[in-house]
Simulated assay, not measured.
Amino acid sequence: MRRAIALIAGGALILAGGVTGTAIWLSQPSYDDIAADCAAALTERAEGNKAKPSACHGVNEDDYQALVMSAVIDDLGWIDEEGNVDKNEILKDALEATP
C-alpha cells in the first residue's frame, strides 16, 4: 500500500513538472518572433545609430547582419512594392552620384 501511494505521488509530481515545463516552454517567443522584433527595432532606430537594439540580442550574428542590410537597403528606397530589390533604383542612385 505504501509503495502504491509513493508511486502515485511520484507520478503526479512528474506529471505536474512536465505540464509546468511545457507551459513555460510554449510561452517563450519563437526565433522568428525575435527576428521580427529585431527587424522592427532596426527600422525604428535613429539614423546613424549603429548600436545593436536590445530586441536583437536573441538573434544570431549572421541573421542580425542580414537584418541590418535589409533595413539599410529598405531605407535607401531600393525595395519595390512587392518587397524585391529594384535594380533600376540602384542604378539611378549610382548614376546620380557620379560627378
Rank of each mutant, 00 (worst) to 15 (best):
A51H: 02
I34S: 03
E96V: 03
I8W: 00
L67F: 09
L76R: 15
P99L: 00
D33C: 09
N49T: 12
I73H: 08
A94H: 01
S70T: 14
C56I: 09
G18R: 12
A51Q: 10
A71Y: 09
A12I: 10
A41D: 03
M69V: 13
R2I: 11
A35P: 00
A12H: 01
L26T: 14
D74M: 07
P29K: 10
D80G: 06
G10A: 08
A55P: 07
A40H: 03
P29F: 02
A55V: 00
I34P: 07
D80Q: 04
M69G: 14
A23H: 12
V85I: 10
A66K: 13
A4R: 15
L91W: 02
M69N: 15
I5Q: 12
G17V: 07
H57T: 14
A16C: 08
Y31T: 06
G48D: 00
A4M: 13
N84K: 06
G21D: 05
M69P: 03
S54L: 10
L67C: 09
Q28W: 03
C38H: 01
L26R: 13
M1K: 15
T43W: 07
K87I: 04
D63Y: 08
I24G: 11
A39N: 10
A94F: 10
D37N: 11
I73N: 07
N60C: 06
A55T: 02
H57A: 14
D86M: 05
M69F: 12
A39R: 03
P53M: 05
A12Y: 07
H57Q: 14
G18A: 06
L26Y: 12
R3A: 13
P53G: 05
L13C: 15
Q65I: 11
L95A: 07
E47K: 12
R2Q: 06
Q65C: 11
Y64M: 05
K52L: 14
L13V: 15
I73C: 07
C56P: 09
A40K: 10
D74L: 08
V85S: 11
K52Y: 06
K52V: 13
I24E: 11
L67E: 10
V85W: 04
E44L: 02
D33N: 01
N60T: 10
P29H: 00
N60D: 15
S27I: 08
D93S: 02
Y64P: 07
K50C: 09
A97M: 02
E44C: 05
M1C: 11
S27C: 07
A40W: 00
R45P: 00
S27M: 10
L95W: 01
R45G: 00
D74A: 15
I14Q: 03
D33I: 00
A97G: 02
A66I: 03
V85A: 05
H57V: 10
V72T: 03
A23R: 14
E44T: 05
A41G: 05
L91N: 02
V59P: 14
V68T: 08
P53I: 03
G10P: 04
E47D: 15
G58N: 10
E44G: 06
Q28S: 08
A71C: 04
M69A: 15
A51Y: 08
I14D: 01
E96L: 11
D62M: 11
I90N: 02
D62C: 01
E81T: 05
I73Y: 07
H57N: 14
V68L: 12
L7Q: 08
D86G: 06
A35R: 13
L7D: 13
A16T: 14
T22M: 15
I5K: 04
V72Y: 08
